[in-house]
Write a protein that binds this DNA or RNA. Structure first.
Length: 704
RNA sequence: UGGGCCGUCGACAAGUGGCAAGUCACGGGGCUUUGGUCCCCGCAUCGAAGGUUCGAAUCCUUCCGGCCCAGCCA
């Protein structure tokens, strides 16, 4: 007898534990040196003044993951020290989102506002130690005396007040003897510090405002820098993790903790916040989109908010997975939204049942199909997971297929239905297009097809090859539904990084509502919140708010990867092999005959066209020249040189943008090659700026 | 121009002096009743220049580039 002993290591790569990162290294070091007795306590400290977004999810996953993996604790703490912006509504939504994400806090929900009494005691301790003083500077004076990066600050006259006087004044602040802004409590640190945060920062301000939890109990409120470390200390937090912009605040965090009597000494560590392209992530921006009604609320599926993603159909697992794979580091970075989409596709590919839905219906009449017959086919709900079972799909004489699955003038690689062509109706049979029926306006009204009764189930009876398979729905049995197609909110990768307002780059097609879509009868009973794959079209989520029993409304979570769409798009843009690096002389000479040189007294003959910048690079050995490769929708790329180098040291930022080109100039031979036209630019002061056409302008479109 | 932080493939990101992980994207091929999934293959000398070393992405020096800080916001 032979015994085979196979040992699997604990970490075989399949375990979901998060990748290593610098914070884990710090914790490993702390545990090794016995700091905090090896205890790990983290927290997620949102301010209740907005909804959570996926950037917060990154923080939650980080903090919760640390506590989980090190056997520690995880707190949720509302950092509610500013009564002006905070609200109960946000507390509720934040808690809901954290729960939905699956970070268990087990009742460990805390509020900074519960610590105000203790904060007050510590403030008094600082005053008593001569480390804080009450000031009466106006905002203007305060700003002026703080100095700037190159100019040290100046001590306020109040800085030398006695401890007794400060104690008395602070008590009066608390007792409401002063109006808003009339007095401040300041830490006495160093007005000459190169770190502006240390120039006697404000600890308490007078604010006669109603706090959403405490009502009117207080009229003085602590500032973040003073409060945050204390909040951590009170809760026994060991590792206080925040984002990069707080790095300059860490000396302050430490200063407060070191100058007051506390039991626990937490430490602050900073990591890079999450940025995603084609969207905006700051609370201020999201709030603006919501308030200006550019989206339909905080949970609009186009928003990167947790509630928006949830309504879009994202699963918490996919968000969790995404947050783990993007990593944690100190480098500012922008993650490709494609990675988020990949996360949800991976999840839904596994779990979503497959069904058929026709987004934009085109009617097909199967002429040789018996008039009132209905054939029910069994169709599996998942191609790999048989255990998910099957459902029945009815085939009738009249059906709908997807409009884009038929083309009259089909390109060579178009495997779908075309006149005289044959395709398979998924799970059902083979049909052949016999006739295209058009209306008086020339639009296609419907298609007449014939079916091969021998092909039931979709197999070809004689082994003939049928490349295309289309999804379809019976016209008589299908159900008309509303489907919402979502796309990226902005047309540019970094909306915040553009000239002008980011709002100028909102994608007008970020939401497309389809009212005439048709789905197979099985979906009539789809329950709210369920997720489906419409074969070949994408993953869809039954909107929990707008759906009714028996009448689902579908939100498209994400499309399927579509390699045909890529081929097709590339084809219509550049039908033949694109000319990239060299412009063939021959071709150019032919062009010469067609395009005549013009002079400026004949300005009306100037042809201005939009062109998409495919490539833009500085020309080596030329002082001013930038070489463009431009798509004017001509099936080839044009090379144009432009003297704009000094204003565009890195011309590649223009790639993907649309510019305006004088297209009918005689090509000019230059030292570096042929220049076929002129890119319009304007001089602004000493800068030369290229004139940009609207994003997404069709290459070759005329400019008036 | 003061201080703090950061520069590894198109996008993220491991790597901590011994021959540059992984993921996404991209390209090529296979399979396929989803142009989906899946499978295979390809894809960087580490911001630059000097130096230390047998050996450097990792250490030193200088330079270049990016981000953050002058709220009684967090």
């Amino acid at each position: 007898m032979r015994i085979t002993n196979i040992c699997y290591s604990q970490d075989d790569g399949s375990s979901p534990s998060a990748a290593n990162n610098f914070i884990r290294e710090i914790i490993d070091g702390d545990i090794e040196s016995g700091i905090n007795g090896g205890r790990v306590a983290t927290r997620f400290p949102p301010e209740p003044n907005g909804y959570l977004h996926i950037g917060h999810a990154k923080s939650i996953v980080l903090n919760y993951g640390l506590a989980r993996d090190y056997g520690g604790t995880f707190n949720v703490r509302f950092d509610d020290t500013n009564p002006i912006t905070e609200d109960e509504e946000y507390v509720d939504s934040i808690l809901e989102d954290i729960k939905w994400l699956g970070a268990e806090f087990d009742g460990r929900v805390f509020y900074a506002s519960d610590y105000f009494d203790q904060f007050y005691i510590w403030a008094v301790e600082l005053i008593t130690k001569g480390l804080a003083y009450v000031d009466d500077l106006s905002p203007e004076q305060l700003k002026e005396m703080r100095g700037d990066y190159n100019r040290p600050g100046v001590d306020s006259p109040s800085r030398s007040n006695t401890v007794e006087r400060n104690l008395e004044l602070f008590q009066q602040m608390k007792d409401g003897k002063f109006g808003d802004g009339e007095r401040l409590l300041r830490a006495k640190i160093d007005m000459k510090s190169p770190n502006m945060n240390l120039r006697d920062p404000i600890i308490y301000r007078v604010l006669h405002r109603h706090h959403y939890r405490l009502g009117d109990k207080w009229c003085i409120y602590p500032m973040y820098d003073f409060a945050h470390g204390f909040e951590d200390s009170i809760e026994g937090i060991t590792h206080s993790i925040c984002t990069l912009e707080f790095e300059n605040h860490r000396p302050l965090y430490d200063w407060f903790l070191d100058n007051v009597t506390t039991e626990n000494r937490p430490h602050q560590y900073e990591f890079a916040r999450l940025n995603l392209n084609y969207t905006v992530m700051s609370k201020r921006r999201l709030l603006e989109l919501v308030e200006r009604k550019l989206v339909k609320g905080w949970n609009d599926p186009r928003l990167p908010t947790i509630s928006g993603l949830r309504r879009r159909g994202y699963t918490s697992e996919s968000i969790w997975n995404f947050c783990e794979r993007i990593g944690v580091a100190k480098r500012n970075s922008t993650v490709d939204i494609g990675l988020l989409e990949h996360s949800i596709r991976t999840d839904l590919n596994e779990s979503a049942p497959r069904v058929m839905g026709v987004l934009e219906p085109l009617k097909v009449v199967i002429t040789n199909f018996p008039d009132n017959e209905v054939i029910w086919f069994d169709a599996p709900l998942h191609p790999e997971k048989h255990e998910m079972g099957t459902r029945k799909v009815p085939l009738t004489k009249e059906i709908f297929i997807e409009k884009e699955d038929f083309r009259e003038d089909a390109p060579r690689k178009f495997f779908r239905l075309k006149p005289g062509g044959e395709i398979r109706l998924r799970y059902a049979c083979l049909i052949k297009c016999e006739k295209v029926i058009k209306g008086p306006d020339g639009n296609i009204e419907y298609l007449e097809c014939t079916w091969d009764p021998e092909s039931k189930g979709g197999t070809s009876p004689d082994g003939r090859k049928v490349r295309g398979t289309s999804h379809w729905v019976s016209a008589s049995h299908g159900q008309r539904v509303e489907i919402r197609l979502y796309d990226r909110l902005f047309t540019v990768e970094n909306p915040m990084d553009t000239d002008g307002s980011y709002l100028d780059f909102l994608n007008p097609d970020s939401l497309v509502v389809l009212k005439n879509s048709v789905v197979e009868p099985y979906l009539g009973s789809a329950v709210k919140g369920s997720r489906w794959q419409f074969e070949r079209k994408g993953y869809f989520y039954v909107d929990p708010f707008d759906s009714a029993d028996g009448n689902p409304v579908f939100n498209r979570t994400v499309t399927l990867k579509d390699s045909w769409a890529r081929i097709d798009a590339a084809k219509t843009k550049m039908p033949e092999k694109s000319v990239v690096n060299k412009v063939p002389e021959l071709k150019t000479e032919k062009r010469d005959e067609a395009v005549s040189e013009i002079s400026f007294d004949d300005f009306s003959k100037v042809a201005l066209k939009c062109a998409r910048v495919v490539k833009a690079e500085a020309v080596e050995n030329a002082d001013k020249l930038v070489r463009f490769e431009l798509d004017l929708g001509e099936g080839r790329l044009r090379q144009i040189f432009s003297g704009i180098k000094k204003s565009y040291p890195d011309p590649s930022i223009l790639e993907g943008k649309s510019v305006v080109v004088v297209s009918n100039l005689k090509p000019r031979k230059m030292k570096f090659g042929l220049s076929e036209g002129m890119v319009l630019a304007t001089e602004i002061g000493s800068e030369i700026k290229v004139m940009l056409a609207p994003e997404g302008a069709f290459p070759g479109a005329d400019v008036n």
